[in-house]
């Protein structure tokens, strides 16, 4: 608890890495996000908790540049990026590990990793080396077709691919979905390790318990609106959160 408060106090004193202000996004007549607000500070792990269809993926994809906001602002390192093209945002240092791992199943592990560096081919060898140091299994399997990997290995590949773009902010959409509990622990350990290496992480999860235990702060998203936010410890203690997302 104390350490979390400290993080928060430290975070408040500096400019946010990612700021989402009053963001609304709609698909036709469906309002997927309604005046959502969120901030991610450098060095944090922030988790976005919400049920299916709460707007988690929409929020992450809009920050990446996939959707054009209806209204509101998105800023990355203070610069407005709402509506900017994905490749520009990736070059600026944002990346997304998509839900369901989204690796290219027919392509080799190496090709998948190199695709992550598509917009940033400088130092590609160095980045590849680092990804292989973190995920030795990927080096062992670099010529294998991604289809042949296990679920956990695919998630590692998707994270490794994101790292290849040399990002500052890694957004991870529901990393635990469809993975065995023991593998989920591995993935959260990896995210924690990457955070200690200096990467800032914005995570969306239905698996609130494990996610909050690894995060500094969290936001609760309900039908497109942020209904609650606080430190991870506060959210873990919150009766509403406990009832709705922790099964307590």
């Amino acid at each position: 608890m104390a350490s979390n408060d400290q993080t928060r106090a430290h975070a408040d004193s500096q400019q946010a890495l990612l700021t989402i202000e009053n963001l609304s996004v709609s698909y036709g007549h469906v309002n997927a996000l309604k005046h959502a607000n969120l901030q991610v500070f450098k060095g944090e792990i922030v988790v976005l908790i919400g049920a299916n269809g709460a707007g988690k993926t929409t929020l992450l994809e809009t920050a990446l540049g996939i959707n054009t906001p209806l209204s509101g602002a998105i800023r990355f390192k203070g610069k407005p990026i709402g509506g900017a093209a994905v490749d520009r945002n990736v070059r600026a240092g944002i990346c997304l590990v998509p839900e369901g791992r989204g690796v290219f199943a027919s392509m080799s592990v190496l090709d998948n990793l190199l695709l992550g560096a598509h917009n940033n081919m400088k130092n590609v060898g160095k980045h590849l080396q680092r990804v292989y140091e973190w995920f030795p299994i990927l080096e062992k399997r670099q010529d294998q077709i991604a289809r042949t990997l296990s679920g956990g290995e695919r998630q590692m590949l998707a994270i490794g691919r994101a790292l290849m773009s040399s990002p500052e902010l890694i957004m991870v959409d529901e990393p635990s979905i469809g993975l065995a509990p023991i593998v989920v622990n591995d993935i959260f350990n990896i995210l924690r390790m990457l955070n200690q290496e200096g990467y800032t992480i914005l995570l969306s999860e239905q698996n609130a318990n494990k996610a909050l235990k690894c995060a500094h702060r969290g936001y609760v998203l309900e039908t497109g609106t942020v209904t609650l936010s606080g430190t991870a410890a506060q959210l873990l203690d919150d009766p509403g959160v406990r009832e709705a997302y922790l099964g307590a």
Partner: peptide
């Protein structure tokens, strides 16, 4: 060719 939406998420224009 494999997945246009996936390619977009990786930042391929």
């Amino acid at each position: 060719a494999e997945d246009p939406n996936g390619a977009r998420l990786v930042g391929i224009p």
